[in-house]
């Protein structure tokens, strides 16, 4: 079948459309990016990112799926919303960064970014939330750092010990009363999202 140049065949979505569709909430306006660069100029993590948000959005428009999902940029987004309030096109930049993180995990590309450990931090965090209903700092710190920075553990242990001495860290997690209810809700949400 001959393709009309510039027209996406039926049933196939551009990468841009996929990213937009995977960003729930109101319209994220991603296709309206006019490449002004305000986002990158406002970004506290900008200097450590492989691509500024502006560059990343040009790459999304160009359909450079792999390069986008291997970029460390979403993982270096600290969720500060500076770009969001400054963007002249009201693009939901922070939410799009979250979408790209999810896609990078799903497709495994995150392993090739310079922030390859970041997803594990998030996953360890939510693991405690799913099992107790509350987050658990000591568990998170020990499990995540033992796995990824065993040598840095000493430094962390110093800080952790201080937290314990100051009474700022629990030794065991707190469990909510209706944990089964929460788990049923999360299970259903996963099913609806087709993740289970």
């Amino acid at each position: 079948m001959a393709l009309d140049p510039g027209i996406v065949p039926e049933g196939r979505r551009t990468f841009m459309q996929e990213v937009i569709a995977a960003t729930p909430g109101g319209d994220p306006h991603l296709e309206l990016c006019l490449q002004c660069g305000t986002c990158g100029g406002s970004c506290p993590s900008g200097p450590d990112m492989d691509h500024t948000p502006r560059q990343l959005f040009a790459m999304i428009a160009a359909g450079m799926r792999e390069d986008v999902l291997k970029s460390n940029t979403p993982w270096f987004c600290v969720s500060c919303y500076y770009c969001v309030v400054r963007c002249p096109q009201e693009i939901h930049i922070t939410d799009i960064m979250y979408t790209l993180k999810r896609m990078a995990i799903e497709e495994g590309y995150y392993r090739e970014s310079s922030a390859a450990e970041a997803p594990d931090f998030s996953e360890t965090f939510i693991d405690f939330v799913e099992h107790y209903g509350r987050s658990f700092e000591l568990g998170l710190a020990t499990r995540y750092h033992l796995k990824h920075h065993p040598l840095g553990m000493l430094k962390m242990a110093g800080m952790g010990l201080n937290m314990l001495i100051k009474g700022r860290m629990d030794l065991k997690p707190t469990r909510i009363e209706h944990l089964d209810q929460l788990q049923a809700i999360l299970q259903k949400a996963k099913e609806l999202e087709g993740k289970d």
């Binding site: 999810r102 939330v129 509350r134 809700i185 999202e193």
Partner: peptide, 20 residues
């Protein structure tokens, strides 16, 4: 009440994060 998911849950799954 349960944890709000901080900045972590949204990075893993969208709908469960909103449901949480």
């Amino acid at each position: 009440w349960n944890c709000c998911g901080a900045t972590e849950y949204f990075a893993i799954a969208a709908l469960p994060a909103y449901a949480l």
